[in-house]
């Protein structure tokens, strides 16, 4: 039970990170590899807001969301929009977003050096409570609740709102979307902003969870995020949620029952197993494209 709680808490961060990846991929067919850099940057920005500006954590998180959204707009404008007319735009965007992510990390290194940063100890109340024999920290509960709420809100936005309809229209057929009067560039930029905002909150939550922020934290989660969206089904929001939680649980249980050095082997091995059974991913439908 204790492991279940730990796994769900870390898994919900993976899911929140991956859902940002998969949102851009599903709607724009682009892989934004600057996403891990946003994840890392947000952790440092969050810590700075709490330690230097003296913000409470409950104000710092929304601020991190906004910072992430702004970074997303920059990424779209700099790494993707100039390349959108190219026949190899998919690949070109992949490369340019890696470059932009690298620049972002370099800026962090200049600002914070290679030091590990932490949220101040008193920034989050160390409340614990018992749940079915497991000890749950308030932090773990908060991470799970915040992540799930954000993901539910995003799913609702895509499925039910005017903006969500436009996003799905752009995903299916950008030309048809333009014919209808949708400003495709604006919808694209908004998608990037949302994606990066979620990735940023994931970064701040991650730094709270492990009580440290390092420059390499984005690179460490990048592969996990990609694995999650492949297992969940590329572009599938519920797939990223379930995939993220599954990966978190697999890691925690692997450490508990097999040994910590086996963590990645067991976790990624399970993911391969899923792909053997369902090559399109848990929630992935075989996409049918009309010409």
């Amino acid at each position: 039970m204790q492991q279940l709680v730990n796994g769900l808490s870390i898994g919900s961060i993976y899911a929140l990170f991956a859902i940002g990846f998969t949102l851009v991929f599903g709607i724009l067919d682009r892989l934004n590899l600057a996403h891990p850099a946003v994840f890392a940057a947000a952790a440092f920005v969050g810590i700075e807001l709490v330690t230097v500006a003296g913000l409470s954590i409950w104000l710092a998180l929304p601020a991190v969301f906004v910072v992430g959204a702004l970074l997303g707009l920059v990424i779209e404008r700099v790494a993707f929009r100039p390349l959108k007319g190219r026949p190899d735009a998919h690949f070109a965007g992949l490369i340019s977003s890696i470059a932009l992510g690298g620049m972002l990390i370099a800026l962090l290194q200049w600002r914070y050096h290679a030091d590990t940063r932490r949220f101040p100890a008193e920034s989050f109340p160390d409340t614990r409570f018992q749940l079915l024999g497991a000890q749950v920290t308030l932090l773990q509960a908060a991470i799970l609740v915040i992540s799930v709420l954000l993901m539910v809100a995003l799913t609702w936005l895509v499925a039910r709102t005017r903006l969500g309809r436009a996003m799905r229209a752009v995903a299916e057929n950008p030309t048809a979307a333009r014919v209808l009067g949708i400003n495709v560039d604006r919808v694209t930029a908004t998608t990037f902003a949302l994606s990066s905002a979620l990735g940023a909150v994931a970064g701040a939550l991650f730094a709270m969870n492990v009580n440290s922020a390092q420059l390499g934290m984005g690179a460490a989660i990048e592969l996990k995020g990609l694995a999650v969206i492949i297992v969940g089904g590329m572009g599938s929001l519920p797939g990223a949620l379930v995939g993220g939680l599954a990966l978190g649980l697999a890691e925690v249980f692997a450490v508990q029952y097999v040994g910590s050095s086996w963590r990645d082997l067991v976790a990624f091995g399970l993911l391969f197993l899923v792909l053997l059974v369902r090559p399109q991913g848990l929630f992935g439908a075989r996409r049918v494209r009309e010409v």
Binding site: R162, R165, A166, R168, A169, E172, T175, A176, V179, E290
Partner: peptide
């Protein structure tokens, strides 16, 4: 997107309905 707002609206070649969206969503768009 500005032309549509001014009342110049196209019914494109090949119809270009959004196949994965519902009929209602197509009309809302």
């Amino acid at each position: 997107h500005t032309m549509v707002g001014r009342g110049v609206v196209q019914v494109p070649e090949g119809r270009q309905v959004l196949a994965t969206l519902t009929i209602e969503e197509n009309l809302q768009l």
